[in-house]
């Protein structure tokens, strides 16, 4: 049959390349429909696995360049900054001693000492989705560095940012922010330690729920973790109360997390 001997036959290499390209396109199509256990497609996982080392490389390279510039080029004002940091350090040491005394007097020092982590790693954010800036972010530490699911994440000021969730790749991990509407944080308000549940609203404010209507809550009260959720250590500052509305049985309390006002250039991952 009809094999047309006059037609120009492509070389075996070209034929093999063309066949492989077409089959590869088909495999991409198939992998975009295979859903893995982490509810993401195989294609998504493969792309994340391929792209994360590049993301980390670019982030570290820019970090090295900007760090070098800061250290060796923009040295003016370094002495003033050092003096300022020294003063802040002294003030913080005094405050720490005062707080330790208060905890000791309250009889909770041992409890806190048992729950607050002393091991941590510094991470840097790689990517924040501009469409959902209050949902999650990607950091430059992954399972290779020992990052595991549910690890607590703080900002450089030691204020709660969120926790590590899947997907965790070798070099990156996802941090779900406390402003995300998924999940919640066991929290307490003010000196009365009114316990409740803090949930995100996908905005710069969180909602604090389950506080009875007759309990006193004032604007500006500090909110911190209670440790009741067994995910976050207790007494980590979260934010301040910015709005209180009395309801029928409970109050609607809006909390502005501290981390939304500060830079997220540096993150602290607490090891359990």
């Amino acid at each position: 049959m009809p094999f047309d001997s006059d037609r120009a036959v492509p070389s075996p290499e070209k034929r093999a390349l063309f066949l492989v390209i077409v089959l590869f396109i088909d495999l991409i199509l198939i992998s975009s429909q295979v859903v893995l256990k982490n509810n993401r497609t195989l294609l998504h996982n493969v792309i994340a696995g391929i792209a994360s080392p590049f993301q980390v490389g670019v982030s570290r390279a820019t970090g090295m360049v900007t760090g070098g510039l800061r250290r060796y080029v923009f040295l003016q004002g370094a002495h003033d900054r050092y003096q300022d940091l020294e003063a802040r350090y002294m003030a913080l040491r005094q405050e720490m001693r005062r707080l330790q005394n208060q905890l000791r007097e309250a009889g909770v020092a041992a409890h806190v000492a048992g729950m607050v982590s002393t091991h941590f790693r510094i991470a840097r954010p790689l990517f924040i989705d501009p469409n959902f800036p209050y949902h999650s972010l990607l950091i430059d530490l992954g399972s290779h560095q020992g990052v595991r699911e549910n690890m607590t994440v703080l900002n450089g000021e030691g204020e709660l940012v969120g926790r590590v969730v899947q997907p965790i790749t070798q070099m990156t991990a996802t941090v779900r922010l406390i402003t995300s509407p998924i999940g919640g944080v066991g929290a307490a308000i003010g000196p009365e330690e009114l316990a409740g549940l803090l949930t995100g609203t996908n905005t710069a404010e969180c909602s604090f729920r389950y506080v009875m209507e007759n309990k006193p809550v004032a604007l500006g009260d500090r909110v911190y973790t209670s440790g009741t959720d067994l995910l976050f250590p207790p007494f980590i500052p979260i934010g301040r109360v910015v709005r209180v509305e009395k309801g029928y049985l409970t109050q609607t309390i809006m909390v502005k997390p501290f981390f939304t006002s500060h830079s997220l250039q540096k993150l602290i991952i607490l090891w359990p």
């Binding site: 066949l19 089959l23 088909d26 495999l27 991409i28 199509l29 198939i30 429909q33």
Partner: peptide, 15 residues
């Protein structure tokens, strides 16, 4: 079915 499976197999068969 799933987009891509028969495309893959028919491409191979065509070859």
């Amino acid at each position: 079915g799933v987009i891509g499976v028969f495309s893959f197999s028919r491409t191979l068969a065509s070859y």
